[in-house]
């Protein structure tokens, strides 16, 4: 009886010793296994995880050629102030804004104004008075017999621009005194000073040539 209980105690002791030894060994092994990956990830994180230039939410910096230049910090910890600026205005961000587009995929700024989607300040100078848009349409007859006449809306243009932007250098402010030609406009004169550059292009003829001539 005594001997058997002693033997049991010995077995239990041995067992616990084995367990304890095994724990320390396996623990240190597990630590070693865990320690390896924790050392590696920082190196992995430096490489761009996923850059999808078409995804407006992807945090990317573009170089001057428009190619992804790399990722900065995270949204929680931006790498620099440029991060914030970049989030506000770049083509990818623009694509995600849902601004109305025309049938050429360009932002339809006139529609933006008409539907009050944006309200830009009239001037950076807080003291400057805002001039209300000039409600004056000018009928510009097309020279040929067939092409629709142009209705030029001062209202939309004066929403963005002051009179001095166009008058008198680009357009003499008197009806019929500007001998405009489509060829000249294509070459960057008159309307072509802006349209085709910063304003919608000349591709959609009927956007301007909108008033049909009396039938001949």
């Amino acid at each position: 009886m005594k001997a058997s209980s002693f033997r049991k105690l010995k077995a239990a002791l041995l067992c616990s010793l084995v367990v304890a030894f095994g724990y320390t060994v396996s623990g240190s092994v597990a630590e070693a296994v865990q320690a390896q990956p924790t050392a590696k990830p920082p190196a992995k994180k430096e490489a761009p995880a996923k850059i999808d230039p078409n995804d407006p939410a992807s945090l990317i910096y573009l170089d001057t050629a428009g190619k992804p230049a790399g990722v900065g910090g995270t949204a929680a910890a931006p790498a620099s102030q440029a991060f914030k600026a970049g989030m506000g205005w770049h083509p990818q961000a623009l694509a995600g804004t849902g601004l109305p587009k025309d049938r050429y995929g360009l932002v339809d700024w006139a529609k933006l104004v008409r539907e009050n989607i944006i309200k830009p300040k009239a001037s950076l100078d807080p003291d400057e008075e805002e001039m209300p848009p000039l409600k004056m349409d000018v009928l510009i007859p097309a020279k040929g017999d067939f092409v629709n006449d142009v209705i030029y809306p001062h209202e939309m243009h004066t929403y963005w621009l002051k009179c001095e932007v166009c008058h008198p250098q680009i357009f003499v402010p008197a009806k019929g005194s500007n001998n405009m030609t489509m060829v000249g406009i294509v070459q960057g004169e008159w309307c072509g000073r802006c349209h085709g550059k910063i304003a919608f292009p000349l591709t959609d003829c009927n956007r301007c040539h909108s008033s049909p001539k009396a039938k001949k």
């Binding site: 097309a142 020279k143 040929g144 017999d145 067939f146 092409v147 030609t181 489509m182 060829v183």
Partner: peptide, 11 residues
């Protein structure tokens, strides 16, 4: 055929 109109348009 539309040469008269073309003339007016300067082409």
């Amino acid at each position: 055929s539309k040469v008269e109109s073309m003339k007016k348009a300067g082409v």
